[in-house]
Amino acid sequence: MLKIDNLHVAVSGAEILKGLSLEVPKGEVHAIMGPNGSGKSTLSYTVAGRDGYDATSGDVTLDDESVLDLSPDERAAKGLFLSFQHPMEIPGVQTMNFIRTAMNAQRKARGEEEVSAADFIRLIREKAKLVGLDDAKLKRQFNVGFSGGEKKRMEMLQMAMFEPRFAIMDETDSGLDIDALKMVGEVVNALRGPDRGFLVITHYQRLLDYIKPDAVHVLAGGRIVKSGGPELAVELEKSGYEQFIEAA
């Protein structure tokens, strides 16, 4: 499904990812853990196509198709979703209008029919309930005045609405309380399926109590330095990253 092959990425002239390779097969959830500054956010921005995060070598493919030459919106239309570590507040943009516009832009790019206003409202109300956002929040300007936790719920709402083929969740758990963590787990578990993949980037093991990963990778110094099963996350929680920082 998502395959990252010997990826090198430089940001403002400094090489951050130094030959990262990783494969998430269809239907699987993989977790990436790693210390601060190891390149986790660079990885998510590069896969999503942010300007200034250019691969100097290597490749990223989604279902065997390279995405590196695609614009961020083309990647989104291919079903690539990024849950942002720091979701934006966008004053003046009405939440419902924006999510519907985005949804229809993706559908249009895929040659699908646009979602009707009535279907959209029904869907967003249902998903808002799932992520624990009340309807009043949907009528506000996008994320404006929202708490950190509410912004993360808004990310999960969009993920639930768009039903992406592949989702990268960049520290979705940071700043969340136990109830919100549970909600994130519920959203991911509801979307889990044979044709969908997830890459969950996190500092801590606790999110993985709610989302059971199929594999855990340690990212340090711009490369994957260790891979294993869910037990690796538990081990890291105990021993920390120090051994990997030294190794990298």
Partner: peptide, 28 residues
């Protein structure tokens, strides 16, 4: 630029994302 990237990650092309932000800006 952060807002532009956010909107584009959600599926809006560059022109649509710019137009939405400008519209929001003068919308006030």
């Amino acid at each position: 630029e952060d807002a532009l990237f956010y909107l584009r990650q959600r599926g809006l092309n560059e022109n649509e994302a710019r137009a939405l932000l400008i519209e929001a800006f003068v919308g006030e």
